[in-house]
């Protein structure tokens, strides 16, 4: 009888640190998948990353790689500066929906269009987490938030933005996929997408973008398990999973 470890902590994950994320928040899963991809590609010593403004602002405390905090929404521009100077490095940004799709919509569109090899991990949880549950550009119609207390009304607030579809209209991006982090089967797919997004950059294949549908149990006011269900039942129909662009 023998025992083999089939699942353990990736080396890039800083094992001694407690993350500040709420119980059941899927940020931690996305972080781990990024760690796994970096480890599998053997790029820990040449990866430089940008943390956003939002819940993941302290991401640099959890991943053992070179990191910097970007200004709110500007991570794609800051990453462009890094990659321009150090084309030999692997540069990725990790941004939430407020950061990327609201204040940083200009920066992400142009970074995707510029097609400089970068990797973008986009966390879409349809709400502002860090600031306390305000309406995001991705908040669904009718979804309640602290700034849409009676539910998002299209007449006042416009419509939730499908960022991956929007970016897929550009000629620049090499790869865009939307994944979810709510169950092992979706997480296995998310891992493949994130791995590919990094591998593309290692192979100098332009800019790759992975949108991760994520939960925010605290600000949604749901238990973590129920939050996953709500995401699959309510968010997923509006934000369908799949590859939106692939140069291959």
């Amino acid at each position: 009888m023998s025992e083999t470890q089939v699942f353990g902590m990736p080396k890039v994950w800083k094992s001694e640190v407690h993350t500040h994320y709420c119980p059941g928040c899927t940020h931690g899963i996305a972080h781990r998948l990024v760690c796994e991809a970096i480890e599998e590609l053997g790029i820990q010593n040449r990866t430089m990353a940008l943390a956003p403004v939002g819940c993941a602002v302290f991401m640099h405390q959890y991943l053992d790689i070179d990191m910097m905090e970007a200004a709110h929404g500007r991570a794609p521009a800051t990453a462009t500066g890094m990659k321009t100077v150090r084309a030999d490095k692997i540069v990725f940004t990790y941004q939430g929906d407020g950061d990327l799709a609201s204040i940083g919509m200009g920066e992400i569109v142009h970074a995707m269009n510029r097609s400089l090899p970068l990797t973008v991990i986009f966390i879409n949880n349809a709400i502002y987490g860090m600031t306390g549950g305000q309406m995001a550009p991705t908040t669904l119609l009718g979804q309640k938030s602290t700034t849409s207390p009676t539910g998002r009304d299209a007449k006042v607030n416009g419509y939730p933005i499908r960022v991956s579809e929007l970016l897929a209209t550009l000629a620049g991006p090499a790869y865009i996929e939307r994944v979810a982090l709510t169950s092992p089967k979706y997480i296995i797919k998310a891992k493949q997408a994130i791995l590919k997004a990094f591998k593309n950059q290692v192979e100098n294949k332009g800019v790759s973008f992975v949108e991760c549908l994520s939960t925010c149990p605290t600000n949604w006011g749901k238990r973590p398990v129920d939050a996953c269900k709500w995401l699959e039942e309510t968010m997923m129909p509006y934000y369908p999973l799949g590859v939106l662009k692939d140069f291959e």
């Binding site: 928040c25 931690g28 899963i29 296995i188």
Partner: peptide, 10 residues
Amino acid sequence: RICPDVVLTV
């Protein structure tokens, strides 16, 4: 795979 806090080793 679903643990957000890398608590489990299998």
